[in-house]
């Protein structure tokens, strides 16, 4: 440390002040960033309706998406996004909750040492790799099994299932392991079998945590772009089957953003899609908070 500094150490009060200002500044930057992003997306996304004079209803309920030709119906993508999100969460839920039960209740030694690290490995794999595996394995498999091109909502959901598994599994594991041991002892002392205990007491208590895990998984699935875009088929038509090419908000966004001119209707509509994505993530986060606060008031009553 330089002598000048050592000779004049800051008083405790100044030190407190410096700490307070530094942390407050960091917080302010974060808040500023978030609001800048929201402002950017909202102001751009609304241009479709304010500047270009398109109707919000036509955007949300229209089914013809041809920005070059003027069709701005985003419903096919909205439906596609919800379909892959719900399906992938549905596929992941039993795996993740089952893994959580196994890790906490059935075999903690093997679970914590092998299963949990293996699941966490999935986090580190880049989306593009998932997309490639989907292209190489799942799409041909679907094509051979069900016919058609192999691209579509089902293929995308299967890839997403694996991608959101680690999030949902590790949060579910946390939720299950945070159930107090007293509950387990209590259930056993009442003559419950291990399965009755897990089913009626442990899972019931962990339910808010598990729901939070699922919603966060959904948020992740909803926002995933690259891997989905590689597998979903990118055909902006109303999906009529899980096995035909479809599209999601993210896949259309990543495909189209580089090919439009800023300020044009085509570009503005893409921003409107981004606005829908943003609004949905806010809804997901809101749900998580609602679950959390409801849980807290119940426990604190």
């Amino acid at each position: 440390m330089p002598k000048a500094l050592r000779r004049k150490p800051l008083g405790k009060r100044q030190l407190e002040l410096v700490g307070k200002i530094t942390t407050a500044a960091c917080g302010a930057v974060v808040i500023l960033l978030v609001f800048t992003i929201i402002f950017l997306v909202v102001s751009r996304g609304l241009r479709t309706f304010t500047v270009d004079g398109q109707s919000l209803w036509a955007f949300l309920s229209g089914t013809s998406w041809l920005p070059e030709g003027g069709g701005i119906g985003a419903l096919p993508m909205i439906v596609g996004s919800f379909a892959v999100t719900l399906l992938s969460t549905l596929f992941t839920a039993p795996l993740a909750i089952g893994a959580g039960i196994f890790i906490v209740e059935i075999s903690p030694r093997f679970g914590r040492r092998v299963l949990q690290p293996v699941i966490e490995l999935l986090v580190g794999i880049p989306s593009v790799v998932y997309g490639l595996i989907g292209l190489l394995v799942i799409v041909p498999f679907m094509r051979d099994t069900f016919g058609g091109t192999g691209y579509g909502i089902l293929s995308a959901s299967l890839v997403l299932m694996v991608m959101i598994l680690p999030t949902v599994a590790s949060l579910s594991t946390d939720a299950i392991s945070s159930v107090p041991d007293g509950y387990r002892l209590g259930a056993k002392s009442l003559g419950a079998t291990r399965w009755q205990m897990i089913h009626r007491v442990v899972l019931r208590s962990a339910l808010p945590g598990i729901l939070t895990a699922l919603v966060l998984g959904m948020a992740r699935a909803f926002g995933e772009a690259l891997a989905v875009q590689m597998i979903v088929g990118n055909s902006a038509v109303m999906p009529t089957s899980l096995l035909t090419p479809a599209s999601t908000l993210t896949s259309i966004l990543t495909m189209g953003m580089g090919n439009t001119v800023t300020g044009s209707l085509q570009n503005d509509v893409l921003w409107s899609l981004a606005l829908v994505l943003l609004a949905m993530s806010l809804v997901f986060i809101l749900i998580v908070h609602l679950i959390g606060s409801r849980n807290k008031t119940e426990a604190a009553q």
Binding site: G182, K188, S189, V201, R204
Partner: peptide
């Protein structure tokens, strides 16, 4: 355990 019940140190009502 059906015939021999138990009460623990910390109250542990279920959720």
């Amino acid at each position: 355990r059906r015939h021999i019940g138990m009460v623990f140190q910390r109250p542990n009502p279920f959720y």
